[in-house]
Simulated assay, not measured.
Amino acid sequence: MKVFDAEAVRNGLPWPALVAALREMFVTGCESPPRPHYTIETADGPPATLLLMPAWRPGGPIGVKFVNVFPGNAARGLSAISAAYILSDGTTGAMLAQIDGGELTPRRTAAASVLAATFLARPDSATLTVFGTGNVAANLIEAYAALFPIEAVRVVGRDPERTRRFVQRFAHLPLCVEVGADPERAVAGADIVTAATLATAPIIPGAALSPGTHVDLVGGFRPDMREADDAVFERATFVAVDTREGALSEAGDLIQPLASGVLDMARIKVDLFELCRGTRAGRTDPAEITVFKSVGASLEDLAAASLLVQQNA
């Protein structure tokens, strides 16, 4: 069985190839049952979450990801997400690979967001605003910069010093990456606004969005988590999801405004399966505000893990 550490995952999954692999998986599909969530009480912090995410293709590879989400790790200076992925042969059941899930998860998550943005954001998008300073946020910056003509990035974080250190990580990129002054000014004029946080109260001010902005909501994966305020959905003409089943049962960003009447089901127009298969269209007006809400899907992990193993066969 091959073992892929974090560096091997980063080097083995270049952004264009990974986005293409995810698009192909959303076209062809696979068996991807709902993921069970288990709440884990902790001794000295907020509750943690254990996720199990299986996916397979008949006769093809079988994958399972084990994910621990510990929000209290932020205070420890540690990543909130720890994960491992096991890929098995679909014919014999033999274990093929053990993959660092802590790197696989943010990489495929960022790739899914950029895949959606190819349908929902303006192709000339040059200014990116990022809420969050974790590993997912870092991957989002790299992924968007790889597939869009991004020139400037504004980063909004809760801790000023952590945000400053995060921004310094991108000094090697031919981009202007800077600390966002405040949420309102950070989103004003942005072509794409993405959030990868564990927020339980809205942090994206919809009233400050400019016409034509694409909003990419990544972080919230429970009904009590939320990144976008009501104004985001009041102004958005187009709302898309990665998978309807997952997003509508897990995402507080959708569940809460649906419950309050701010959002209705008619405006949740499309999922990534329909976009990738060409059965539904994405953005049609350069001035409209679009929203993509992802909660992650095990088929994304399977696509990424399969690509990684194929390229290292």
Rank of each mutant, 00 (worst) to 15 (best):
V187G: 03
F233K: 00
A181V: 15
L209V: 08
A186M: 08
A195F: 05
D182Q: 12
E184G: 00
D229Q: 01
R244M: 13
T213Y: 00
P183K: 09
D229A: 09
A208P: 10
R244K: 13
P211V: 09
A231M: 14
A251G: 01
V218S: 07
I203V: 15
A201H: 14
I203P: 02
A186W: 01
T213C: 13
A199L: 10
A228C: 11
G246E: 06
A228L: 08
L198H: 10
V215A: 00
S249Y: 00
G252Q: 00
P223Y: 10
V241G: 05
A240V: 07
F238A: 02
V239Y: 13
E184V: 14
E184K: 12
E178P: 04
A228R: 00
A208E: 01
T200A: 11
V177W: 06
T237K: 14
T213P: 03
T194C: 12
E178Q: 15
A251V: 05
L254I: 08
A207I: 04
D224V: 11
V177L: 05
V239P: 11
G220I: 04
A228F: 04
G180M: 04
V239D: 04
A196W: 04
R222T: 15
A208F: 03
G189W: 04
F238G: 01
I192W: 03
P211S: 13
A247I: 07
A186G: 13
T200G: 03
L209P: 10
R226S: 07
A199R: 05
V177A: 09
S249I: 08
T213R: 10
V232Q: 05
T200I: 14
R222D: 00
G206L: 07
G220T: 03
A190Y: 08
V193K: 03
A188R: 14
V215I: 13
A201E: 15
G206R: 08
P183T: 10
P202T: 07
A188S: 15
T197K: 07
D224G: 12
G246H: 08
G246T: 05
E234V: 14
A188I: 04
G206V: 06
M225V: 05
P223H: 02
E227K: 12
P211A: 12
I255A: 02
S249W: 01
G252L: 05
G189V: 12
V218Q: 05
D229I: 00
D253T: 03
A207K: 15
E245N: 10
G180S: 10
L254T: 05
A195I: 11
T194G: 09
I192Y: 07
I204H: 02
E227H: 11
A199W: 12
V187I: 10
R235W: 06
R222M: 13
E250R: 14
D242Q: 12
V179S: 04
I204S: 00
G252P: 07
D253E: 09
A208D: 10
T213H: 03
A186Q: 03
G206Q: 04
E245A: 15
G180H: 09
V241D: 07
R235K: 15
G246L: 02
F238M: 13
A208W: 02
P211K: 00
A207G: 14
S210Q: 12
E245W: 00
I204T: 03
R185F: 00
V215G: 02
A207T: 14
T194K: 13
D229K: 02
A201R: 15
R226K: 09
V218K: 02
